[in-house]
C-alpha cells in the first residue's frame, strides 16, 4: 500500500518535471527539473530493489552529468529569449511532433499492456539479492562476467575525455 502510494507520487513528480523540462523557456530551469525527474526515478529504482542503480542515478546522473549541463549553460550565458525568441520556421513541426509522440505512446502502451514478457526466470530473486546485497552482486558481476565490457567502457570514457578536450579547446591562432 505504501509502495503503491510512493510509486504514484514519484511517478507523477517525474512526469510533471519531465513536461517542465520540455516546456520551460529557460534552460537552467529545464536542467533543474531534469534533476528532479532523475531523483524521483532513483526512488523508483529503490522500489524495484535496485539500490546500487538508485545510488549512482543520484550521484552520477543527477550529480555529475547534470552539473556539467548547468556548467555549460552558465558558461554560454544563455538567457531564455536568446535562442527561441523568434517564430518557429517549421510550422507543422510542433503539431506533428506532438501527434506522432502521442501515437508512439499509444503504441508503447498497447505493447506493454497486451504482450506478456517471455523469458527465463533468473536466480536473482529479491530475497536472494537482499541476502547478499545489491551492490555486492553488481560489483561481483562487473568484475567477473562483464569484465571485458567494463574495461571497454574505460577506454570509451578515455576517448570521450580526449574528444571533449579537443572539441572544446580554443583554437590557437598564430
Amino acid at each position: 500500500m505504501l509502495e503503491g502510494l510512493v510509486f504514484i507520487v514519484m511517478g507523477l513528480i517525474a512526469i510533471v518535471c519531465a513536461i517542465c523540462v520540455v516546456f520551460q523557456k529557460n534552460p537552467i530551469y529545464s536542467a533543474v527539473f531534469l534533476i528532479q525527474t532523475m531523483v524521483s526515478l532513483a526512488v523508483l529504482y529503490v522500489l524495484l530493489h535496485a539500490e546500487f542503480i538508485a545510488a549512482i542515478q543520484v550521484m552520477v546522473y543527477a550529480g555529475a552529468i547534470m552539473v556539467l549541463f548547468v556548467f555549460v549553460i552558465m558558461l554560454l550565458n544563455l538567457s531564455s529569449g536568446d535562442v527561441e525568441g523568434g517564430k518557429d520556421k517549421l510550422i507543422l513541426q510542433k503539431t506533428s511532433a506532438i501527434i506522432l509522440g502521442l501515437i508512439l505512446f499509444a503504441v508503447i502502451g498497447v505493447v506493454t499492456v497486451k504482450t506478456v514478457l517471455h523469458g527465463t526466470q533468473g536466480e536473482y530473486t529479491p530475497e536472494y539479492i537482499s541476502r547478499i546485497g545489491n551492490t555486492q552482486l553488481v560489483g561481483k558481476l562487473l568484475f567477473t562476467d562483464y569484465v571485458f565490457p567494463f574495461e571497454i567502457a574505460s577506454i570509451l570514457l578515455f576517448a570521450a575525455v580526449l574528444g571533449a578536450i579537443i572539441l572544446a579547446k580554443k583554437e590557437i591562432k598564430e
Binding site: I15, I19, V22, T37, A97, G101, L104, I108
Partner: peptide, 10 residues
C-alpha cells in the same frame, strides 16, 4: 513510455 514520449516531443 510516458517519459520517453515526453523526451521525444522535447
Amino acid at each position: 513510455g510516458i517519459l520517453f514520449t515526453i523526451g521525444v516531443i522535447g
